[in-house]
Design a protein around this nucleic acid. Structure first.
Lengths: 212, 212
DNA sequence: TGAGTAGTTGACTACTTAGTTAGTATTGAG
DNA sequence: CTCAATACTAACTAAGTAGTCAACTACTCA
């Protein structure tokens, strides 16, 4: 039934890259079309606006890139403290890699876009909140398991997760602003301090995830 | 000698407000001129570009609003742990107040702008880094004093400050994204956990600062 | 095979934006 | 009072921007 195309995927990829490299507001529909090698008429064939493209692009990023990696890293088969330790330890090399590839520390596209558009673009910020909430569940579940197994001292896992998310986001944002991934080296120790663990369990798994 | 004016100050105030309420990229020079009731010709009489106006506006915000408040709150005459406790405790009511005034949680303009423009606008992001670095010194000094006075366990104050800054920024950003100041209620406990203090010294001073 | 459908295109409009300029108004110092 | 420094303005240009559309193309499946 008719012609096939991957132009919509090229558009989502181009949009995500550009928004990540620059910012949501700095990227125009023309820029996205140019990078995706798609004419503007085709853009409007697939999407209503830059905001709706961004919503689709973020959802795609979640399901294609983030979710699979997080499912593996936060597998309940892994010791909950190890899950967290591996995840925290992976953030620094990840941003180093991004800096090597793009010349800049790019941080987290979801948080950057979220902070930028939260007072406008309601559909897009709803999607950002949705993705952040999905990601939160991995941390929260690990923290809950750690408490149940007596690996960390009892606490409210919801509050602890909020603090952990804040710490991660904040350090990642700092790394972007300073264009310096090294602040993320503090993350494992700081996060474990926050969780009330003195000696972090040193990572055993291969690490290297694509999330954030 | 010649005509006097406060148009440049009106422009800086308008720019800061608009950028804070929306974002750097979403605000145009025309918007700023309209809010400041200044014609565009006058804008270009005082400033070269939106970026140079933003640099001036941030510097003005620092010297007029932030510095005086921080100097008072972080006075060396105050117990260092109390300095931090009061500061942490003030962030939640501050964002509540902003939400009441503007209808939205606005977060921190410096961090938001910094994250948005860090990969472009080099002068503006240099100014952001400068202001963040100035603010950092207040925390760092309090942490150093607290260590010296044996109020918190010995640690590297530079690393601890990085973690504290990350936690604050991250929670403030979350509050903006969720349009909900209540995540900041976690800040004092989380920050003290990070610093290795079990029972935060309850605030004694009047609180209410304008910073962040 | 051919017919309908999914996708593509370039040229178009209407509008917004940054930035310029030539001339005008206001002020304080002398 | 006056004149030179400072500030202001309306009207302008050139470029960019979102969004539209009618005609076109190539694919798939019946």
């Amino acid at each position: 039934m008719g012609r096939t195309s991957d132009a919509n995927e090229r558009l989502m990829d181009a949009a995500l890259d550009l928004i990540w490299e620059e910012s949501y507001g700095a990227v125009t529909i023309d820029d996205i079309c140019k990078r995706a090698e798609v004419k503007k008429g085709s853009f409007y064939y697939f999407f209503d606006s830059k905001a709706s493209l961004a919503v689709a692009a973020l959802e795609r990023m979640w399901s294609e890139d983030w979710k699979p990696g997080l499912d593996a890293q936060f597998s309940p088969s892994i010791n909950p403290v190890t899950r967290l330790a591996n995840y925290f330890a992976a953030l620094h090399p990840r941003q180093v890699e991004l800096k090597a590839k793009y010349g800049k520390v790019l941080g987290c596209p979801v948080c950057s876009v979220g902070s930028e558009v939260s007072t406008q673009e309601i559909d897009l910020s709803a999607k950002v909140r949705e993705i952040m909430s999905r990601k939160r569940r991995y941390y929260e579940s690990a923290i809950r398991d750690a408490i149940a197994e007596g690996l960390i001292e009892p606490c409210d896992p919801v509050q602890k997760t909020t603090a952990i998310v804040g710490l991660i986001e904040g350090l990642v944002a700092q790394a972007r602003i300073l264009n310096d991934p090294s602040v993320l080296k503090e993350l494992p120790a700081a996060a474990f301090g926050l969780l009330g663990i003195k000696v972090p369990v040193t990572a055993a798994a291969p690490a290297s995830a694509s999330a954030t």
